[in-house]
Design a protein around this nucleic acid. Structure first.
Lengths: 242, 242
DNA sequence: TTATTATTGTCCCATAATGAGATAATAACA
DNA sequence: TGTTATTATCTCATTATGGGACAATAATAA
């Protein structure tokens, strides 16, 4: 889809979107034993931002988030959870929006609400890192993964949003089956443990972690994985279809 | 505050509120061993609704919720948690709003967004039942407590919102100190247990519940409560100031 | 072929948390 | 003084968890 069409779409219908409401997505991936977040580099600004967008008048908020996710990753039916609304009075979005818009899209200033304070619904998404095709939107130049530990300079209150998303992920780690969305189809027990350790930022014991995971009765043990290393080959697992 | 002033305030400033965004509060109280919710009877309609309202342009969403809570209960600094946003495409608010507004406040129809679909941020609040002074707003005739088990006919998707609030309350029961907000200053162990049983809808064992609560080291044991009944008098407790 | 090495998969035991019944304490009343 | 209805504890079996030990094994070195 050509970028200019997106902008035209954006401005075409005066009342296409719910004003002053946006959706921001914290997209988590797991690669090389590290938790990553997908971010957009804003045009002509030394700032990065979360993938986000407006909610169409005829669209549910969850659908808006799914649409935004699909546009940035190429994936459909992504695991998605609403986790918090950011709407404090001092969200100083005005200066940012002004900077972003005035450079390339001064036309959008005709919508007065574009410059007002936003209330943003935060979603977090879990994706299989290897399947994502990062795609920038019409406000951004690049779309890239960043390691959670080394985030770049972020626009708005997006650093706080990412932080809150991670906290929510930690709390829900046990009740939701986080692993099944962040890992590829098959994986070793060490990879699963490594994911938990990365999210929780705490080391876990191999024996107890394995016992716990197997007792949950959610994993299927497949064949062994021969890595070529000089040691016992680990089993591969997959999540049971429920 | 006279009711008419509220309406005038409401319509005075064209751009006072964020359009199509509302806040709905599920206010929980505990009385006679029962969990209660505060509801408003809509004027000229056989329907009840959650206390709610719009968010002012210069106001944080949490502040909006606190303001609404204060108006309906007379209480300040209420315990409050955001729990979910309701914004599916098929929230059929339009017919309701039309019915409500056309009877008494057709002027408000001049704001076109008043009739559009709303995205509503759900909050739940915990209050000391005995301290609340229920006060209707300009759209409602009465403001009353209802037992969770016997809710009346509700407007919009408010029944679903209440249900989700209760589910969230159950999940967070252990991590947040729910009791300290729903109970009066002092209480017996049985009253605390009864609160837990009501929220969880499951019976608990007296001995194990007491052991658990005391082990948390959050309760202070005060004097005994002589009820006049022919049996051992229970201790009174209060939550420790932290 | 055999020993070595780095991991992986289990096992075992001490300790902590939980479920469930039993017992002791006591305030009012018969 | 005994009875009764509760409340507060105690005890014991079961389950979950923390932490160390050991056996299995895939490649490599001897």
């Amino acid at each position: 889809m050509p970028i200019m069409n997106e902008l035209e779409d954006f401005l075409a219908l005066k009342h296409r979107f719910i004003p002053q409401l946006s959706v921001d997505c914290v997209i988590f991936g797991f690669h090389n034993q590290q938790l990553k977040v997908l971010l957009l580099k804003l045009k002509n600004l030394d700032l990065w931002a979360l993938p986000g967008g407006y909610v169409e008048q005829s669209e549910g908020i969850d659908d808006a988030a799914q649409r935004i996710l699909e546009e940035r990753t190429g994936l459909r039916d992504i695991y998605l959870e609403q986790f918090r609304v950011f709407g404090s009075a001092d969200r100083s979005t005005k200066e940012f929006i002004q900077k972003i818009m005035e450079v390339h899209h001064p036309e959008s200033m005709n919508e007065p609400w574009v410059l007002q304070r936003y209330v943003s619904i935060g979603y977090y998404a879990l994706v299989d890192f290897s399947k994502v095709n990062p795609t920038p939107d019409f406000l951004s130049e690049y779309c890239e993964w960043f390691e959670m530990k080394q985030l770049p300079k972020l626009a708005f209150d997006h650093r706080e949003i990412i932080q809150k998303a991670l906290e929510t992920l930690r709390i829900t780690l046990d009740s939701k089956l986080i692993g099944s969305n962040l890992l590829p189809e098959t994986f070793t027990m060490m990879e699963l443990q490594s994911l938990y350790e990365t999210i929780l930022e705490t080391p876990l014991r191999r024996n107890n972690f394995q016992r716990k995971m197997l007792s949950l009765d959610i994993l299927e043990r497949i064949e062994k994985l021969y890595t070529g290393a000089a040691n016992k080959a680990p089993y591969l697992y997959r999540f049971k279809k429920s």
